[in-house]
Nucleic acid binder design. Sequence first.
DNA 1: CCCACTGTACTGTGTGTTTTAATACGGTCA
DNA 2: TGACCGTATTAAAACACACAGTACAGTGGG
Lengths: 123, 123
Amino acid sequence: MIQLNYRDSKPIYEQIKDGFRKLIISNTFLADEKLPSVRELASSLAINPNTIQRAYRDLEGEGYIYTVPGKGTFVAGDGETYDARQHELLEEFDEIVEELYFLSVKKKDLLERIDILTGGGET
Amino acid sequence: MIQLNYRDSKPIYEQIKDGFRKLIISNTFLADEKLPSVRELASSLAINPNTIQRAYRDLEGEGYIYTVPGKGTFVAGDGETYDARQHELLEEFDEIVEELYFLSVKKKDLLERIDILTGGGET
DNA sequence: CCCACTGTACTGTGTGTTTTAATACGGTCA
DNA sequence: TGACCGTATTAAAACACACAGTACAGTGGG
């Protein structure tokens, strides 16, 4: 489900956050679907439960998941507020576009790339 | 010239790398212009020369600067190969676009953003 | 030639973050 | 009641970051 890379300089809890974000974005996890419990995932990944806990806490802060005390952790639903995360991503987007433009990547190439990633439709 | 933020969780050498990248991208530093020496910059920023050295070494790896032994460190020229850095940035670009799209940011908004950042011209 | 500058390399040390470990507590539900 | 859930806390090991000090080789002006 989640693949850890111990050679990566990125902390394990960040790798877990990235992993679940991608699973949610790709609709592998649907709204209100239950995530593995802290202890279960820690056991299957052979790492400490505290590390999972930290990843879940951060993802909840980003709006991607929510927890119900005593029941478990779940994927956030539709009417969620991702404002903070969205703002953060747009700032990164701007910086990357500016640098890519300096590196002679054509505007047209970026537009084509967006088209492919978003399915080529209207929105 | 470079502004450090000790409250930022980002390591100092990363802040220095980001700072010089932006100065080069914005043409504040021109091709073949000399950068401050390791010791001089370390002194003016009141940090350790080793930290500057690490930032310069990384920037050289990205293709943004080059060093001439005994003379100094300089901004890379025109016909440089930024292939690795470019590839890295395009991967980040794709990931951010995918997540923004999931967060209901419209394709049109991203295109407008690129237009503004690149000056609205053709390339 | 000398000296002051350049980048580079290395060892050691202190500090903070990351991760682990071991518990403990309260809520949920069959 | 017992087995599962998330959460909290404290302590210690492991690691990255930054600093301090020293050393060496190349460059170029006086």
